[in-house]
Amino acid sequence: MEEIIAMLNEIRPEHDFASSEDYIEDGLIDSFDIITLINMLEEKYNISIDGIDIIPENFNTAENIAELVRKSGGNI
């Protein structure tokens, strides 16, 4: 989970992700941040995230992002 928070901080250093319960709802990341994050996740975990899974609900918390990585075959 810390690895994901670190990636999010790299994308949006101005935000405090630890205090948010919904990154999308709170406006911490937008669709282009999600694309950037996907690229980082795919490189780090050597996975390919299915396009149909690229929906806001899978990126609104670090837990959900980690679950998506696992679903995509990543070891996290």
Partner: peptide, 27 residues
């Protein structure tokens, strides 16, 4: 609110909605 600046005269795309629409409908 997301770092972008635009007016009501400008084109706007809801990137997330459009991306998901393409991935769900086109295959």
């Amino acid at each position: 609110g997301d770092g972008n600046y635009r007016s009501l005269d400008n084109m706007h795309m809801d990137g997330s909605a459009v991306f998901n629409f393409v991935q769900v409908e086109v295959p």
